[in-house]
Amino acid sequence: MTLSARILIIDDEAPIRRFLRVALEAEGHHVTEAATGRAGIEACALTTPEAVILDLGLPDMDGREVLLRLRDWTQVPVLVLSVRAGEADKVALLDAGAQDYVTKPFGIGELLARLRGLLRDRGASEPQGAALRIADLVIDAAGRMVTKDGAAIHLTRKEFDLLWLLASNAGRLVTQAMALSHVWGPAHLEDSQYLRVFIRQLRAKIGDDAGNPRYIFTEAGVGYRFATA
C-alpha cells in the first residue's frame, strides 16, 4: 500500500504538472505546484513537502540552482526531471544533492516507482535509540558507540556522524555533497578534502581496506556506498 505524502512539483509546463498531479493524487498523495524556481523554493518553505519533483528547464533559473538553494536549508528528497541524459549531467545533479533522476520523456510507472523509493527512504537520519548491526560492526546511535567483534572503537563526533550517515543508508549512494552537507554543513559543499580525510580515518579505525573494501565502497567521482551485510 502506498503511503500518502506531500509532493511538490516544480515545472513550468502546465500539461506536465496536470499529468503528474492526476497520477500522484490517484496514488493518494497531496500535490502542490510551482511554475518557476523562485515559486518552488517558496512553496517548499511554506508546505514542507516530503518529496520534490524538480524540472531542470525553468524560466527564471536553472533547476540545479534551485536544488542548491534548497540544500542550503532542507534535505527533502528531490527527484529531478531532465532531458539531459549524459553521465556528467547526472553526476553533477547527484553532487548537488538530488536523490534520483528520470530522463524525459518518461513513463509514469517508472517515475512513481522512483518516487516510492524516495519516500521509503525518508527519515533515514539518526533515530533516537537506534542501533545498526552490519557484518561484525554494531553502531549505537543513542550511545554514539561503535564496536567490532565486541571491541569498542573510538570515533570523534564527526567520524561517528559520517559513519552513521553511511551505515543508515546501507546499499544506497551517499553523494559527496550529501555527506559534506550532513556532517560539516551547507557552507562546506566544496570541501571534498574533508570527506576524503575522514573516509580514510574511518577505514583505518574500522579495519577497512580501500583497495578491497568490506564496508565502505567508493563510487568514483560521485560518493560512497556502505555494505548491506
Rank of each mutant, 00 (worst) to 15 (best):
L93E: 13
A26D: 15
R38V: 14
V83I: 10
E25D: 08
A39Q: 13
T36M: 14
L79W: 04
M61I: 10
E110H: 05
D62E: 14
A43C: 12
P105K: 01
K104G: 07
E25R: 14
A96N: 09
A45W: 03
D100P: 00
T32C: 05
D55S: 09
L46R: 09
L112K: 08
V22M: 08
A35C: 08
L111G: 02
E110F: 07
R69M: 06
A35M: 10
C44S: 14
A34H: 04
A85R: 13
A92D: 15
R69T: 11
L67N: 08
L112W: 02
T48G: 10
E65Q: 15
D62G: 11
V76Y: 10
Q99W: 13
E65F: 04
L81V: 02
E33F: 03
G97N: 11
R84T: 01
A23L: 08
A34M: 04
E27T: 02
T48L: 15
R64G: 01
E33P: 01
P105Y: 04
L81M: 12
A43E: 12
L24Y: 10
A51H: 10
V31M: 11
L58R: 03
Y101D: 07
G109A: 12
V66C: 08
P105H: 06
V31I: 12
G86N: 11
T32L: 05
L93C: 13
C44L: 15
A85I: 00
R64K: 12
E110Q: 12
L94V: 03
P59H: 10
A39C: 10
L54S: 04
D95W: 00
G40Y: 09
D95I: 09
V80F: 00
T36I: 14
A98S: 15
L94H: 13
G57E: 02
L68Y: 01
K104T: 07
V76E: 11
T103I: 14
A39H: 08
G107R: 00
D62W: 06
L46S: 11
G57C: 00
I53D: 01
K90T: 01
E50R: 09
V78E: 10
D62A: 11
H30S: 12
V52K: 12
D72W: 11
L24F: 15
E110C: 02
L112M: 11
D100A: 09
L46C: 04
A113L: 10
D62Y: 07
V78G: 04
D60Y: 06
G107I: 00
L68N: 10
P59R: 06
I108S: 02
D95C: 05
A23S: 15
L58P: 00
L111Q: 05
R71H: 11
A113N: 07
A45C: 04
A92H: 06
E87K: 13
V66G: 01
T47V: 13
L68F: 00
L46Y: 03
G28A: 04
K90Y: 04
L68C: 08
S82T: 14
A85T: 06
E65C: 03
A113S: 13
L46F: 06
G37L: 11
L56T: 05
T48K: 15
A34S: 09
T36V: 13
R64E: 06
R71F: 11
H30L: 08
D60Q: 05
I108D: 00
P49H: 07
V91F: 03
C44D: 06
R21T: 15
T103S: 06
L93H: 08
L56A: 03
I41P: 00
